[in-house]
């Protein structure tokens, strides 16, 4: 007669046990990985974060943005401004970047939430363009040609190049874990239940008294603040920023969308899997240049047309896999009936 609801599956429990040593191994990476590998891993962690965040926005909240580069660039520029112009220590600047991301995205959300569906998407792009053109006007940050992070700020991170590379990696890894942790927490909270309800049936959700606007607003603001943090770390790694690089629609939106679509939109595992596939492809096919981008576009279209749940959706339908304990399962039903 004991009926219980659980979100855990045997696989997800096993996965949590495996996760701990993996994380420890990743933290220890500076001692076993070369400098180039460490940089690549940092890039993977940051892209994975962008993909997980965009997926929360588009796959769960139905806010299909093609303008998240607005916050990547905003975070990068603000980090440069806070450290170079305001003289803050990088570690102090990073949390401020997140806060500023929250603050700036709130009025943006109020404005562009007036656009429905696909028009919302283009509206986000306009916002990104406004950000890009505005930062290009700021002479103190190099105007249109951009600026470099001054050496003493870089030095303030840690003594010696190896130590700095390690710090950059730990920051990227930490940000990645923060992002995934936040998204899991959000999806398991009341907001997450509301989000799932909205995703499945917006009209029914509304009739159940779920405040759709507020739920979407919360997601947009949280995602934008964290995206700004990732932007700051991306340009901390690059050491140089310019309007075109910071607000690149290709780098921070096109790739991210392809990652999520290929991995599986609307699942947490999808973007993570998608990032790994994306980097595996990039490391082997990047020599093809534009052809690689064309192939990526074709793959994304084919997946959208014929397997809209992506790679992870395919695996999950096949074997019922779920690594993160998100969906609720009822156990004990059979016993009760018997």
């Amino acid at each position: 007669m004991s009926l219980s609801v659980t979100r855990r599956t045997r696989l997800s429990t096993a996965w949590l046990i495996v996760l701990v040593p993996i994380v420890l191994l990743l933290i220890a990476a500076p001692w076993w990985a070369g400098r180039a590998d460490l940089r690549l891993m940092g890039e993977i962690a940051l892209y994975m974060s962008l993909a997980v965040l965009w997926n929360l926005l588009a796959g769960y909240a139905g806010l299909v943005s093609v303008g998240q580069q607005a916050y990547v660039g905003f975070g990068g520029y603000l980090f440069f401004a806070l450290t170079m112009l305001a003289g803050l220590h990088p570690y102090a600047a990073l949390p401020l970047v997140v806060l500023a991301g929250f603050v700036i995205s709130a009025p943006v959300a109020v404005l562009i939430f007036r656009l429905r569906g696909a028009y919302f998407a283009i509206g986000t792009w306009v916002v990104a363009e406004v950000f890009r053109l505005s930062f290009a006007q700021m002479a103190s940050l190099g105007g249109g040609s951009g600026t470099s992070l001054s050496p003493d700020i870089v030095r303030s991170l840690a003594e010696g190049r190896d130590a700095r590379e390690a710090v950059a990696w730990w920051l990227a890894l930490g940000a990645g874990m923060l992002v995934i942790g936040t998204v899991v927490w959000l999806l398991r909270s009341r907001q997450g239940v509301a989000l799932t309800a909205i995703r499945d049936n917006e009209l029914a959700a509304r009739s159940l008294g779920i405040d759709i606007w507020r739920t979407k607003f919360t997601v947009y603001v949280v995602v934008s603040g964290l995206t700004a943090l990732i932007g700051a770390l991306i340009f901390l790694q690059k050491l140089r920023i310019s309007p075109d690089a910071a607000f690149s629609a290709n780098d921070w939106t096109a790739f991210v969308i392809f990652i999520v679509v290929i991995g599986g939109i609307g699942t947490l595992e999808g973007p993570i899997l998608g990032t790994l596939v994306f980097f595996a492809l990039r490391e082997t096919l990047a020599d093809l240049g534009t052809l690689y981008l064309i192939a990526l576009g074709v793959v994304a279209i084919v997946i959208m047309l014929f397997a809209p749940r992506g790679l992870w959706g395919f695996l999950r339908d096949r074997w019922g896999l779920e690594l993160f304990p998100l969906s609720r399962r009822v156990s004990g039903l059979a016993k009760k009936e018997a």
Binding site: A118, L293, L305
Partner: peptide, 19 residues
């Protein structure tokens, strides 16, 4: 669902630019 046409035309945009 709004997502498929949006993402497909987005993919098309990237393909066209690179072609």
């Amino acid at each position: 669902d709004l997502l498929p046409p949006l993402l497909v035309t987005f993919g098309l945009s990237v393909i066209l630019q690179n072609v």
